[in-house]
Measured scan of single mutants.
Amino acid sequence: MLEGKVKWFNSEKGFGFIEVEGQDDVFVHFSAIQGEGFKTLEEGQAVSAEIVEGNRGPQAANVTKEA
């Protein structure tokens, strides 16, 4: 698991990027966000996630919002 913060997230398109210190930004799709209801993230929000290899490079999986 790694910790980072949301760089930006487009709720209409359902994707965005997470900033991780010392690494390239990581793509995040709404389907990777854990929880019930409408899955979205806010800019600057702290999150933790796993990194997996997607079709277009590294992407976030099992994204959870930090308190």
Rank of each mutant, 00 (worst) to 15 (best):
V28T: 03
N55L: 14
I18E: 00
G54W: 08
L2S: 08
F15W: 14
G57T: 03
E50S: 12
S11T: 11
K39M: 07
M1P: 11
G44P: 02
T64E: 08
K5Y: 11
E12H: 14
L41V: 03
D24A: 14
G57Q: 04
R56W: 15
K65M: 10
I51M: 09
V26D: 00
K7E: 00
P58S: 08
S11L: 09
W8I: 02
E53R: 13
V26Q: 01
Q59Y: 14
K65I: 14
V63M: 03
V28H: 03
A60W: 03
E21F: 12
K13P: 00
E66Y: 15
S48G: 07
A32K: 06
A61M: 12
E21N: 10
Q59N: 04
E43L: 13
Q23F: 14
G4W: 08
K65T: 11
E12W: 13
D24W: 10
N62D: 04
V6M: 03
S11W: 11
V47W: 02
T40M: 09
R56Y: 12
E66L: 15
D25L: 10
D25C: 12
E42Y: 15
G57Y: 05
G37F: 06
E19V: 11
I51S: 03
T64I: 15
I51D: 01
G57D: 02
T40C: 13
S11Y: 11
N10K: 07
Q45M: 11
G57A: 06
M1L: 12
I51Q: 04
G16Q: 00
G57V: 04
A67C: 12
V6R: 02
S48F: 14
E19C: 14
V26W: 04
E21A: 11
S48I: 13
A60K: 02
G14D: 00
K13H: 09
G4R: 03
I51W: 07
I33K: 01
V28G: 03
T64H: 13
F30Q: 03
Q45N: 07
E3Q: 15
Q23E: 09
G14I: 03
E36H: 12
G35D: 08
Q34W: 09
V28K: 01
V47H: 03
V6I: 09
V26A: 04
G4F: 07
E66F: 14
E12D: 10
I51V: 10
S31N: 06
G44N: 06
K39Y: 05
V52R: 10
G4E: 00
F38C: 10
F15A: 00
E66M: 15
K7R: 10
G16V: 04
Q23T: 09
F38M: 06
W8C: 09
V6A: 02
V52M: 09
W8S: 00
E43H: 13
V26H: 00
N55H: 13
E50I: 15
F17W: 09
E3M: 15
F9V: 00
D25A: 07
V26M: 06
G35L: 07
E19W: 11
G54L: 07
A61S: 10
G22D: 07
G44H: 06
A46F: 14
D24F: 11
V26S: 01
F30M: 06
K5W: 10
I18Y: 02
G44M: 04
V6Y: 02
K39E: 04
L41R: 01
F9A: 00
E3N: 15
W8T: 00
F15L: 04
E21M: 11
V47D: 01
G44C: 09
G35N: 07
A32V: 09
G44E: 03
K7S: 04
G37E: 06
R56H: 10
E43D: 09
V6Q: 00
V52T: 09
A67G: 12
A32H: 07
K13E: 02
S31M: 07
F38Y: 11
T64M: 13
L41G: 02
Q23P: 04
Q59S: 07
E3S: 14
F38N: 05
Q34I: 14
D25G: 05
L2Y: 11
V52F: 10
I18P: 00
D25H: 07
N55M: 13
I33M: 04
N55T: 13
T40E: 06
L2N: 06
H29V: 04
G44K: 05
Q59M: 11
E36A: 12
R56K: 10
G44R: 05
A32D: 10
E50G: 08
F30D: 01
E21Q: 12
F15T: 00
L41N: 01
W8G: 01
G35K: 05
V6W: 04
S48H: 13
V28M: 05
I33G: 04
Q23G: 10
Q23W: 14
A32G: 09
V63K: 01
K13Q: 07
D25P: 08
E21P: 13
D24G: 13
A49Y: 15
A67Y: 13
L2C: 10
I51C: 08
F30G: 01
F15Y: 14
E53A: 13
N55G: 11
E53D: 10
N62Y: 11
L2D: 03
L41F: 05
V47Y: 03
E3D: 10
I51E: 02
R56I: 07
F15D: 01
Q59F: 13
S11I: 10
L41H: 03
E36T: 12
K13C: 10
F38W: 13
A49I: 15
E50M: 14
E43Y: 13
V63C: 05
T40Q: 07
V20K: 05
A61R: 11
F30L: 05
T40L: 07
E19A: 14
Q45A: 09
D24S: 12
S48N: 10
E42K: 14
G44F: 05
S11F: 10
K5R: 13
E42Q: 13
W8N: 00
L2P: 03
K39T: 04
A67S: 12
A32M: 07
H29F: 10
G54I: 04
E66T: 15
A46N: 11
S31C: 09
E53Q: 15
G14L: 03
T64N: 11
Q23D: 06
F27I: 01
G4S: 02
H29K: 04
P58V: 10
S31E: 05
T40R: 08
G35E: 09
E3T: 15
E43T: 15
N10R: 06
V47G: 03
A60R: 02
Q59I: 10
E43P: 15
A67F: 13
F17L: 05
V47Q: 01
M1W: 13
K5S: 07
K39D: 03
D25Y: 07
K65R: 11
E53V: 14
F27V: 00
A60Y: 01
I18S: 01
E50P: 03
A49H: 09
G57W: 07
E21V: 12
H29W: 08
Q45T: 09
R56L: 09
E21G: 08
F27Y: 07
V28Y: 03
N62G: 06
V63P: 02
G35V: 09
M1Y: 13
E43A: 15
F38G: 04
A46E: 09
F30R: 07
F17R: 03
G44V: 04
G37L: 05
F38S: 05
V6T: 02
V20Q: 04
K7I: 07
W8V: 00
E12A: 14
N10C: 11
E3I: 15
G57L: 04
F15I: 08
W8F: 07
T40Y: 11
F17G: 00
Q59D: 02
K13I: 07
I33R: 00
F9W: 15
N55Y: 14
Q34S: 11
A32S: 09
K7C: 08
V28L: 06
G44A: 04
V63F: 02
E66P: 11
G44T: 04
I33W: 04
Q34R: 10
N55F: 15
V52C: 13
E66I: 15
K13N: 05
A67M: 12
V26G: 00
N10L: 07
N55V: 14
I18D: 00
T64L: 12
G54F: 08
V6K: 01
P58T: 09
G4M: 06
K65N: 07
E50F: 13
E50H: 13
N62E: 05
S31K: 07
L41K: 01
G44Q: 04
E42P: 03
D24E: 12
G4I: 05
G37Q: 04
Q34E: 10
T40A: 07
V6H: 01
W8R: 00
V52Y: 10
V52S: 08
D24N: 12
E43C: 14
G22C: 08
A60V: 06
N10E: 00
G16H: 01
I51G: 01
A49G: 12
E50C: 14
L2H: 10
W8E: 00
P58E: 04
G22T: 04
G54M: 08
A61Q: 10
V52H: 09
V6C: 07
N62C: 12
F9D: 00
K39A: 06
A49F: 15
G57M: 05
E36D: 11
E12G: 10
S11V: 11
G54Y: 07
A46V: 13
K7F: 05
H29A: 01
E42V: 14
F38R: 06
V47A: 03
G14T: 03
F9M: 00
F17I: 07
M1V: 13
E66G: 14
K7Q: 03
G54H: 07
G16C: 06
M1H: 12
A60D: 02
K7Y: 05
A46C: 15
V20H: 03
G57H: 05
E50K: 12
F27P: 00
S48Q: 12
A61K: 11
G14F: 04
Q45K: 05
G14P: 01
F15M: 05
